[in-house]
Design a protein around this nucleic acid. Sequence first.
DNA 1: ACATGTTCCGCAAACGTTTCCAACATAGGG
DNA 2: CCCTATGTTGGAAACGTTTGCGGAACATGT
Lengths: 339, 339
Amino acid sequence: MEGAREVARAATIHAVAALAGVSPSTVSRALNSPGLVNAVTRQRVLESAEQLGYQPNRAARSLVLGRTSNLGLIVPDIANPFFTPFIKAVQAQVRQASYSLFLADTDEDVEVEVEAARAMAKQVDGMILCAPRMPGNRLRSIAVHTPVVIANRQSRTAPAVTMDIGPGVRQAVAHVHALGHRRCAFLSGPRGSWSNQQRLRFFTAACQAQGVELIVLGPFEPVFGGGYRGADEAVAAGVTAIFAYNDLVALGVMSRLNDRGIRVPGEMSVLGFDDIPMASMMNPPLTTVMMPITAVARASASMLLALLGGNGPPRPAAQELAARLVIRSTTESARPAGL
Amino acid sequence: MEGAREVARAATIHAVAALAGVSPSTVSRALNSPGLVNAVTRQRVLESAEQLGYQPNRAARSLVLGRTSNLGLIVPDIANPFFTPFIKAVQAQVRQASYSLFLADTDEDVEVEVEAARAMAKQVDGMILCAPRMPGNRLRSIAVHTPVVIANRQSRTAPAVTMDIGPGVRQAVAHVHALGHRRCAFLSGPRGSWSNQQRLRFFTAACQAQGVELIVLGPFEPVFGGGYRGADEAVAAGVTAIFAYNDLVALGVMSRLNDRGIRVPGEMSVLGFDDIPMASMMNPPLTTVMMPITAVARASASMLLALLGGNGPPRPAAQELAARLVIRSTTESARPAGL
DNA sequence: ACATGTTCCGCAAACGTTTCCAACATAGGG
DNA sequence: CCCTATGTTGGAAACGTTTGCGGAACATGT
């Protein structure tokens, strides 16, 4: 009967004005453009505001200002450790520019992705999209209304910051080649994912260039469990080294190989992709291609802020950062099969 | 010079009204209370809205309605895998109730915690706080203005949902006792953390009750690296089993023990806390106390939604869910020292 | 034909801000 | 002493919605 517990009704600018004995306009000015109001009046206003615990109503402010001071970030999966440094870096930068951040996770689902983006677009000034699966036209329909920066994927629709995996992939292939591996497997990630297509393409090219036979398997779920099946198929295919779509599946592969009594790196070399924090903590620590994800986050955030700053589209409408190989302990010389 | 790239100015309700040949009020009603408007007019309005790509202005709506349809969630650390199931579950439930979610991470820092909460409070209808370090008075000053549910921590200020670690801890101690361990270490987490104090208290009580000597060490950082030092100190203390503050440090402990050539569980039993996804994937898989974190998330979200639903404070103003031990492969019979 | 009820719709106020404009006071220059 | 520039303030409009109130149109019962 009593309805929702009545939270103390927030003080408005009028209340502050009344208490300070000035008009609401003066209060607004005292708070937002200190230069325009007499110092002693200002002090009085500030005290009244403090006393009443005045907090400006964001909705009213947004309404007249036409902006929300909120930014959005969409990532495929919060649980994927690959994204956590990304999220943290974006959040830090955004907060420093005194914006708040909306974060949404799409469970790696295209429909959720566009739905989340659409819903978010209505209440932010701009957003960073890390949406590897969203079709181009959907993306465009959003970018028309809202300033958008695309992360980790190329785009002609909006400014994008991507990673150039070329150097890392070539280093990886050169590394296994130098160790004597001649027949390797690539464990694909989700079929529709742009990242997967890109990785597959570069591995194919690098292997061909360096004379390594590449067996491509999959697709597998880009999670730990995906590595189980991947390991089995790779073993069946008789390869001596495995390039996993990402570190998570590499970890799954190692676990499965261990279960089957196949020693890493003694009998099978395993390479990951991404260099998530966990990679260096595994036993043995994982050799992997390090993605400069934090740098991407910073660049994306800067780009978005520049876009909103009204300085026109940022100079480089696209930016690309290089990945590189990190050699740890899951790669070793190939041994002749059967030994 | 040209200013920010001018995004197409959004269509207002007036534009839709004009196109449909009705008044703005009718448009509003057609969209929000279909029953109050004639079916054919409604159809006309809907078509006009569609044609113009009309999206209601959230700020204006919030202003008159007095609510934002946004909820907030504050967690100490997104990178901590313990929280990812929590975040996901909250997000799913919140979205289902057609709210959007603001997510903030506080880097385990008290100041950031209260600052984030304060900033967030201004633009959400309610929030879930997972803030183990926030002082009670700060918490109260926020809960006065905004409906709040506290997760994973007791509170007399706001409705809370906590986990009862008692059963899990007692099972863990009984387990190692049954295996013959009589001298164990507890690796403490952050000193100020409520969780840590709680875990320490329960382990102390359970060990005393069951006749196990407990050496408490630390505090250690609640991350992987924290386990390195923890492992060394535990070995130095001459214990045969280690209770880690959480799974992350347990993983660090295992890694460090492995480096030092100390076999787990052969020479040292290790128990974690939380049962993060990774725990079951380690090699060997970790024996740990499982926290019902997803259940907590669901309960918190339901509680908050009930609070907002205006049904008054939800029936149980506090709720408690039980933790339990999950036995895997890092615990084994104690061997006489020196063998 | 009239009274009464129902259905549908428009008018206008309200939400809490910001900001343009005008008004006033004061000071300074001629 | 007047004119103008400057500094400070209040009034009022505007942002885009929702909603209470009243009126028009129409149907129904007498």
